[in-house]
Design a protein around this nucleic acid. Structure first.
Length: 742
DNA sequence: GTTGCGTTTATTTTT
DNA sequence: TAAACGCAAC
């Protein structure tokens, strides 16, 4: 028994966690600690709570925190899980050593610890998709392939598919053999085949890894280095995986290796919420879990604690049409609640206006706080009209995902400087900034340097460093020397404490703010650019301050920690933190979570994509753009050609689109509104739209229809009147006077 | 080598 | 529509 084996000599004084308020299925999921366990957890069935309870229950049974690894899909989920566990366990100290992280962060930890075995430097850079694209572009030029002819992001995704050995089209359970002309273009396959070895060699030469590497390289370590595998298996005795339906082949293999013969693997997920097939997630992982791990205990969590009956039934009706499901039926003990609203708008701007005004109504009439309201959509592009309408209505909001601070050119430039200074072998960063701002090291010079580097099999930076002796670079020698000198000077400064100050200094020295000013056309654009740079610098200061605090705390806790774990070697400092401290740590974190250090949003409405909404819930949810081609989304639209329907169906994964719709609907607790419009601005021109087929699946009895275009129905008029009353009333309150416009 | 203008072309979802 | 790119003039 685990109790006797792991129980420390000084038994804990904590009362065992109370499981009496869990339902019977939940209790099984918590108490069944040994062997493979599959928890099929419907939306809103309390799955996060179950995982947290399970972890604390393991602690109760005397399992040391170090032996538990809980993996989540997003950083946000990991943070929330940690908080929940700490709260339930009644003590943060008791949780010290627990591993709660994303797969990718876990990969970073393994690589930091054992990456030396496969020639990875201690502080490797992590390439995001932008960096990947830049590298591929570079390689295309080396190959003397016409790079304009190829869509680089598409090549990147083919490379990823080839490397992870998973074809998204080869999904289990997908209907009629989709001959995706997109994935199979022989020309692309050929070029990608040429690219592949060079791409991997390129990354290794730069001391960099991409997202796939964070799974593939740890996998390689576990497969090929026996002692690494043994060390990991010895340590991680209890494995928990959240959102299991979104795991891919590499993740399954990683888990299988870690679980070893002990097979204490608990996976929690929902086949109905699998929405990442396009990224290689394999539904068959969850559907075939019991075959992969014979003897699996299966638990179904079907009681929903989140949504009203009407919302639940509507969502069930939509997902019910999917074939090949595990077949859960969610039910609630709560009331039926208000009907689901379906809104038909003439155009996207009126759709947005309706949403904004309804938010005002909910906020004043139903007293729903703004942070309990979300507006969801399929594509990021849909955010714009919504933003404008919300701004006009004076509703505070925040857009999650999409283009953030870190997608701005000036910010990426600054980041490239930091990365290049820390690791001059990082060619992608180096080449990005070698002549930005312009310093007289033009294309000619750079091309020659790269050619020399390739010929001599040396990093480009080494060539630049030796520019003085190279006749090819003689003409720009002074300028190149200045650049090299600057990079070398800032390297050490950015590697130690005070890096945030050094970054600011660097920023001043290269005149980044001035450059941004020059590059902006309008005055507001200028201000935004400068503000973006300032934003990053502020974040660095903030990060450094927090790191110092943490270090101080750790120093305080260390003696106690050493005492409590006398048997176990204290190999690594802080288990919570797979990342290095200092600037490299910040950059690594940033690559894996660009929302890092986002300030407190306050009371604001959330705007996000359906993918971004997974795992979250709000009292009121607006799901916008329920139109054919948008939700369900069709990858390729033959713009004006008549015969659209059958062809379009072939290009989309209808089942996944349906799941996506289901995910969106089940985010709502009390109020759910689905909107669509008759025409939508696309590429500047209006485009006719038809309502989504998913709307047809809603039982009429659960729906209130509101038509904003046709003759006003009684309901619509009533809504409009109420809206107007409240709008004016609150404008008076807010402004202390009558509004300017209705 | 650099800058600016006109042309083109893309539009899913993200660790 | 807006950003990215190519080309031509400084």
């Amino acid at each position: 028994m685990a109790d006797s084996k792991y129980a420390p000599k000084d038994a804990p004084q904590y009362a065992p966690i109370d499981l009496s308020h869990l339902n019977p299925q939940q209790r099984t999921a918590v108490a069944q600690t040994e062997g493979p366990l599959l928890v099929l957890a419907g939306a809103g069935s309390g799955k996060t709570g179950v995982i947290a309870h399970r972890v604390v229950h393991l602690l109760d049974r005397g399992v040391p925190p170090r032996a538990i690894l809980a993996v989540t899909f997003t950083n946000k989920a990991a943070t929330e899980m940690k908080e929940r566990i700490v709260k339930l366990s009644q003590s943060a100290a008791r949780c010290r050593g627990l591993s709660v992280s994303t797969f990718h962060a876990f990969g970073v930890r393994i690589l930091r610890e054992h990456g030396g075995r496969i020639g990875l430097p201690q502080r490797f850079a992590i390439f995001d998709s932008g960096d990947q694209a830049a590298l591929v572009k570079r390689l295309l030029r080396d190959l003397k392939v016409e790079d304009k002819k190829f869509d680089v992001p598409r090549l990147v995704s083919i490379l990823s598919r080839k490397r992870t050995g998973v074809s998204p089209a080869a999904q289990a359970g997908m209907e009629e053999g989709l001959d995706l002309a997109r994935g199979q273009d022989p020309e692309y396959e050929l070029v990608a085949g040429e690219l592949l070895p060079r791409y991997e060699l390129g990354l290794r030469a730069m001391g960099a890894v991409d997202f796939d590497d964070l799974l593939l390289l740890p996998l390689r370590l576990l497969r090929e280095e026996r002692d690494v595998l043994e060390a990991c298996q010895k340590r991680y005795r209890y494995l928990l995986v959240d959102e299991y339906q979104d795991t891919n082949r590499a993740q399954l293999e990683l888990l299988t290796l870690l679980a070893g013969l002990r097979r204490n693997l608990c996976v929690v997920g929902d086949d109905d919420q699998s929405i990442y097939a396009w990224r290689g997630a394999q539904l068959k992982n969850i559907l075939g879990f019991d075959k992969q791990f014979p003897g699996t205990v299966e638990v179904f969590l079907e009681q929903n604690y989140r949504s009203s009956g009407a919302i639940l039934d509507a969502a069930n009706a939509v997902i019910g049409k999917n074939p090949g499901r595990k077949g859960k039926t969610l039910w609630t003990a709560g009331g039926r609640g208000a009907n689901v609203r379906v809104v038909h708008a003439p155009a996207d701007d009126s759709e947005a206006k309706y949403v904004a005004e309804e938010i005002l109504r909910l906020s004043f009439e139903e007293k729903v706080p703004l942070h309990e309201i979300a507006v969801l959509y399929r594509t990021n592009a849909q955010a714009r009209p919504l933003e404008e309408a919300l701004k006009l209505a004076g509703v505070r909001y925040r857009v999650v995902g999409g283009t953030s601070l870190f997608d701005r050119k000036e910010v990426r430039d600054l980041l490239a400087y930091l990365r290049a200074a820390l690791n001059p072998r990082d060619e992608v960063s180096l080449l990005r900034i070698v002549n930005t701002p312009a310093r007289g090291i033009g294309d000619q010079t750079v091309s020659r340097a790269i050619e020399l580097a390739r010929a001599r099999r040396e990093p480009v930076f080494e060539i630049l460093r030796g520019a003085a002796e190279l006749k090819e670079l003689a003409h720009a020698e002074g300028r190149v020397r200045g650049f090299v000198e600057m990079i070398e000077r800032y390297g050490p400064l950015l590697s130690r404490q005070g890096f945030s100050g050094a970054a600011r200094e660097l920023c001043g020295e290269i005149g980044l703010v001035e450059e941004a000013r020059k590059g902006a056309k309008s005055l507001p654009a200028q201000a935004r650019k400068v503000e973006a740079i300032e934003g990053l610098l502020r974040q660095l200061v903030e990060f450094e301050k927090r790191a110092e605090q943490k270090a101080a705390e750790a120093a305080l806790h260390l003696p106690a920690k050493a005492a409590s774990h006398e048997g176990e070697p204290d190999d690594d400092g802080d288990d919570d933190d797979a990342f290095a401290a200092g600037l490299p740590g910040y950059l690594a974190r940033l690559a894996l979570d660009s929302r890092e250090a986002e300030g407190d949003p306050g009371d604001t409405v959330t705007l996000t994509t359906l993918h971004g909404a997974k795992g979250l819930e709000w009292r009121a949810v607006f799901l916008c753009g329920l139109e054919e081609g948008l939700l369900p989304h069709s990858g390729r639209g033959f713009d004006d050609a008549g015969g659209e329907a059958p062809a379009a169906d072939g290009a989309m994964n209808l089942e996944e689109e349906r799941r996506l719709c289901y995910v969106g609907m089940t985010r709502a607790r009390a109020f759910l509104t689905l909107t669509h419009c008759r025409e939508r601005l696309r590429r500047g021109a209006p485009q006719p739209r038809t309502p989504s087929r998913f709307l047809d699946d809603l039982p009429a009895a659960l729906v209130d229809l509101i038509d904003l275009s046709g003759p006003q129905t009684a309901v619509a008029q009533e809504v409009k009147d109420a809206k107007a009353r409240n709008f004016f009333a609150q404008m008076d309150v807010l402004l202390g006077g009558p509004p300017k416009e209705g």
